[in-house]
């Protein structure tokens, strides 16, 4: 018990919170970009433009089938070779965005596929262009149905930020490791804090997804 009281000192808690903030920051920015890029890729794969869609599809498959850890290494250590010097936060965001965009692209593609074909035909026969119909009719319906899988992918993203400890992103898990690394008695309190904090953030996301899902459908 005494260990818990000592471990949750103001100093340690504020250090943990600084880590949590980086986790949130990296997650929010990565979700934002991967949602946009994932949608573009998902549509690109769905529309079946000769060669182009096949190539996009292959690249998506490559990325989806690699461990995120590997993509993190590549981004941090390989990008400077083409003249981009990145500090660890942007490097982590880029790696997360690349990986999660590919994961989201698959969800979005199958979401679009689930919208009845008649919808597109009806929109086209009412004089809309293909892209107008896609943006105004198909995608909004697809997103409505995709909320649960999309949000569960976002939750994965928040959890996956912990893997960036391997390139020393100063996020929640790394900060907890530093604290218990300096005092072994704090090990259990730190793991308890980690489980609780990740749970709160992700459970809030999942509750929000249920609420939105119910409102829309």
């Amino acid at each position: 018990m005494q260990n818990f009281i000592n471990a949750y000192s103001a100093v340690n808690l504020s250090y943990l919170m600084r880590g949590l903030w980086v986790t949130v920051e990296v997650s929010v920015v990565s979700i934002f970009f991967s949602f946009i890029i994932g949608t573009l890729l998902g549509v690109a794969r769905y529309v079946k433009i000769k060669y182009f869609s096949a190539i996009v599809g292959f690249i998506i498959d490559l990325i989806r089938n690699l461990p995120l850890l590997l993509i993190l290494f590549f981004t941090y250590f390989a990008l400077p070779n083409i003249g981009i010097r990145l500090s660890v936060i942007p490097a982590s965001i880029i790696a997360m965005t690349v990986f999660e965009s590919a994961m989201l692209a698959e969800i979005i593609r199958s979401g679009i596929g689930a919208v009845p074909i008649g919808q597109m035909e009806a929109a086209r026969s009412n004089g809309m262009t293909y892209s107008q119909a896609m943006i105004q009719i198909i995608l909004p319906q697809a997103f409505k149905k995709m909320i649960p899988p999309l949000v569960s992918q976002f939750i994965s993203l928040v959890k996956d930020t912990s893997l960036a400890t391997i390139i020393l992103l100063p996020e929640l898990t790394q900060h907890a490791q530093i604290i218990y690394g300096q005092n072994v008695n704090y090990t259990i309190p730190m793991f308890a804090a980690l489980a609780l904090l990740y749970f709160i953030v992700n459970y809030a996301l999942s509750v929000a997804s249920h609420v939105i899902d119910r409102r829309l459908n």
């Binding site: 070779n81 981009i84 942007p90």
Partner: peptide, 18 residues
Amino acid sequence: LFAALAMLLVVSGCGKSV
């Protein structure tokens, strides 16, 4: 961060290795 990353995505990396 948003702004910087958006720029980074627009500007292609064609510079010399750091």
